[in-house]
Design a protein around this nucleic acid. Structure first.
Length: 798
DNA sequence: TTTATAACGCTTTTT
DNA sequence: GCGTTATAAA
């Protein structure tokens, strides 16, 4: 082992070293949270390159997000420099796009295929459900879409599904019909959806072993990150790629001259070596088909596989790890794994219960400001929540408290209407077969082309056996008014002009700037930008800026890919997720869902909304394995924190415009009590002498919910302190009562007089809502009116 | 065809 | 609470 080799191993613990240096057909690295897996992975790649066991071009490293891929490439480059070029470090999806582009002609697509994101495919499915009268059977586009997606992830197509489905059930027959039509629709549009990218690549490899062999011969070392999140199709793809080369020679498809590569006699070459890294405790994507068995049964799938366990954590304090271990330990049927650190206990976890989500948010804002004064950088603070909708309350308070923040992965840039419109213009140029894109831009901006005209175009196209796009060129033949004819002709002319710019018919290469310029041309000459500028809707100003940004993205793309065509650009754009542009959060607090948080780490983490029905989410309760997955999600959130972890919740939460009572999450009770320092525990909130609500004090007498629900302690007529007397604190971890304050079925009617612990006496003006959500509208004697949740407000009937 | 209004219903996570 | 969609009116 030479010096450079030694440098690669420096600072690694023994299991990490083993993971870097082991050589064999299959290696599973079970990497607990924060155990340095990216480091191990990059060093392993560097080690392979350094020892000349592999050329860069023989390495395929697969990650889950583009961001992770970029990071890995960067870190490998830091070690091996220029040598990193030629490696494929990419996501499953972009790797498959690369392969499919090269091989598309083998199976009825062209190189110019486009990619349908979930919105696109939803739109297509929606139309099909309508056409087939699907709602008669209770079909919703979302439901059909998720069924199709699940099936594709299992590598089933409409035909194979039909074979084993109960076809005497008319609903099943209809579903199969819609599924098949959907697939035909995609094919006709020369497009793949996300799931197809993987599945079709697998089909391609299976149907054309000679094609598969090309890639098997090329990639000798395959490394897969986040293996616990792979679904069956991705698993199958890995399997296909790691098969011995030439093994498929007897396959009937390999005769017949379909393949583009000359069949040649191959000496059987053994399969590529496979390294997978994962942590079954961090599997949080089962809902979209991730199969935890891929990792738990790895040793069975790849006999002779080596397993390396990384348990030492380099990220968090022992207190945080102990809490994480305790919670995840409640999941049964998992391999026991305990994270540990040698860096000390650190601070206690801080718990806080607010009266409302605003109160909770206020606490977080106050705490952030306090940390800020202690010289903590905003960028090292993150706030996590389970659902995107929870971010609103946080935002409101943060804005008021002047806490700079950035929402990660909120409304997605590429899902904004104006961006999708702009991309549809590009698609109309790059892949005119994609009828949906053409239809989308038909009347954007408004040109007076409505339903009637659209159908006329479609009928004409069908009659003439031409595409919808080509029908636009014959506006005069459509039998529509002259004004509309002119509008269509103008649109057609703009598209033609852009096509010449971006895809010159002469065959010469368009200049790198063509995409950005073409986009600008489309947006301005189509009148799209003018329409936005003329609009009086203030949001449209922001839309113009978004479009400017898209043009900037196109320019950036041209710089990075001088040979990139508009098709390449669209392909890249279709596969960027929002997790990918997390970087520019400098100087602001990061807000994101727990799912988005995976793979990230922060000094200080606020885990908010730690309530039943939120985490675990109520929808998960009914799904098999749901609560367990929610626990893993919680575990992921907890293990993101390096030094400080806050667990916060609220007593009441407004959801769907309704206020409801929230209960502390069961996960809180799974954390040993001594680990948490409750600033205000769920118990305190209901019992006398609890701490005061800061939110209330900050804005006394403010109407609305936050002021209204809030109450400070107060005697509880129905049981006082809900922790039974004489019970040791350990038995009831964290003193979390099973119930919050409960007034039972207190009956209130208009005209009743009540006394409120904080606001004094008043008269009930009205009662709205039902059951636990009944709300009393009370006019207090000082003139203030409040809305009070009858079940839990600290009130007594007089 | 477009616009205004009402009703509706849906609310988890995402490459 | 929200955005989307159906319906009615201009």
């Amino acid at each position: 082992m030479d010096r450079a080799e030694n440098a690669l191993l420096e600072g690694l613990n023994p299991p990490q070293r083993e993971a870097v240096t082991y050589r064999g057909p299959a290696l599973l690295i079970v990497a607990g949270a924060g155990s340095g897996k990216t480091r191990v992975l990059t060093h392993r790649i560097a080690s392979l390159l350094h020892s000349r066991e592999a050329y860069p071009s023989q390495i395929l490293a697969i990650t889950f997000t583009n961001k992770a891929a970029g990071e890995m490439r960067e870190r490998v480059e830091q070690i091996v420099g220029e040598n990193a070029r030629g490696m494929w470090i990419s996501t499953f999806h972009s790797a498959c796009v690369r392969i499919l582009r090269r091989e598309a002609e083998n199976f009825g697509f062209t190189k110019a295929f486009t990619i349908y994101d979930s919105g696109d495919s939803r739109a297509l499915i929606k139309r099909l459900v309508r056409d087939h009268d699907g709602d008669a059977f209770g079909f919703t586009p979302a439901g059909v879409q998720s069924r199709i997606s699940k099936l594709k992830n299992e590598l089933a197509d409409a035909e194979s599904y039909a074979r084993q489905a109960n076809m005497s059930d008319p609903a099943e027959r209809l579903f199969v019909e819609i599924f098949a039509d959907y697939q035909r629709g995609l094919q006709k549009a020369n497009a793949f959806d996300f799931d197809d990218l993987i599945a079709q690549t697998v089909y391609l490899f299976r149907a054309f072993p000679k094609v598969a062999d090309v890639y098997r011969r090329r990639f000798r070392h395959i490394l897969v990150d986040e293996y616990q999140d792979t679904n069956h199709a991705q698993y199958a793809l890995i399997h296909e790629l790691t098969r011995p080369v030439g093994a498929g020679e007897s396959d009937p498809y390999s005769v017949g001259g379909m393949m583009i590569f000359e069949p040649e006699k191959d000496p059987l070459l053994e399969g590529a070596s496979l390294t997978v890294v994962g942590d079954s405790d961090q599997s949080i994507y089962a809902f979209r088909g991730a199969d935890i068995r891929n990792i738990s049964e790895f040793e069975r799938d790849f006999p002779g596989a080596k397993v390396v366990l990384l348990e030492q954590n380099y990220r968090s304090t022992q207190n945080i790890l102990s809490a994480a271990n305790a919670v995840i330990g409640h999941n049964f049927d998992r391999k026991d794994k305990k994270l540990w650190t040698d860096s000390g206990d650190g601070e206690k976890i801080v718990g806080f219960t607010g009266y409302s989500q605003h109160d909770e948010a206020q606490f977080i804002a106050d705490e952030i400001e306090r940390l800020r004064k202690a010289d903590v950088d905003y960028a090292e603070i993150a706030v996590f929540y389970r659902t995107n909708s929870q971010s609103r309350a946080l935002e409101e308070i943060f804005i008021r408290a002047a806490v700079p923040y950035k929402i990660m992965g909120g409304t997605k840039f590429y899902e904004r209407a104006e961006i999708k419109d702009a991309l549809a213009y590009l698609i109309a140029v790059a892949n005119p077969a994609d009828e949906m894109a053409v239809r989308r831009i038909l009347n954007k901006p408004r040109r007076g082309i409505g339903d009637v005209t659209e159908t006329a175009i479609a009928r004409y196209a069908a009659d003439q056996q031409i595409t919808f796009r080509d029908a636009l060129a014959n506006a005069s033949a459509l039998g529509v008014g002259p004004k509309i004819q002119a509008a269509i002709a103008h649109l057609d002319a703009v598209l033609v002009e852009a096509t010449e710019k971006m895809l010159p018919a002469s065959g010469e290469l368009a200049p790198p700037t063509a995409v950005a310029e073409g986009l600008q041309l489309l947006l301005s000459k189509s009148g799209y930008l003018d329409a936005l500028r003329a609009s009086k809707d203030p949001q449209d100003e922001a839309r113009v800026e978004n479009l400017d940004e898209l043009v900037a993205v196109a320019r950036e793309f041209a710089r990075n890919n001088p040979d990139g065509t508009v098709i390449d650009f669209l392909g890249e754009v279709a596969l960027v997720a929002d997790a990918d542009d997390l970087d520019d959060a400098t100087g602001s607090v990061s807000l994101m869902t727990m799912h988005t948080a995976k793979g990230l780490e922060y000094d200080t983490v606020f885990l908010t909304g730690v309530e039943e029905d939120l985490i675990p989410h109520r929808i998960s309760a009914g799904e098999p394995g749901g609560p367990q997955e929610e626990r893993r999600l919680f575990y992921v959130g907890v293990t993101r924190a390096r030094q400080r972890l806050y667990l916060t919740l609220a007593m009441t939460r407004a959801q769907f415009g309704e206020v409801s009572v929230a209960m502390p999450s069961r996960f809180l009770q799974e954390i040993p009590a001594p680990l948490i320092d409750w600033r205000q525990s769920p118990g305190d909130v209901n019992s006398r002498g609890g701490m005061q609500s800061r939110a209330l004090n900050a804005r006394p007498g403010r109407g609305g919910q936050s002021g209204g629900w809030g109450s400070r302690g107060g005697s509880n007529r129905y049981g006082g302190d809900l922790v039974p007397k004489g019970t040791s604190i350990d038995k009831i971890a964290n003193r979390i009562p099973a119930k919050v304050r409960d007034n039972g079925d207190m009956e209130l009617a208009t005209g009743d007089r009540i006394r409120h612990d904080d606001f004094g006496e008043g008269r009930v003006d009205a009662v709205t809502g039902e059951g636990a959500k009944r709300v009393a509208h009370v006019r207090f004697d000082d003139g203030a009116t409040k809305k009070l949740l009858i079940k839990i407000a600290p009130i007594t009937k007089l």
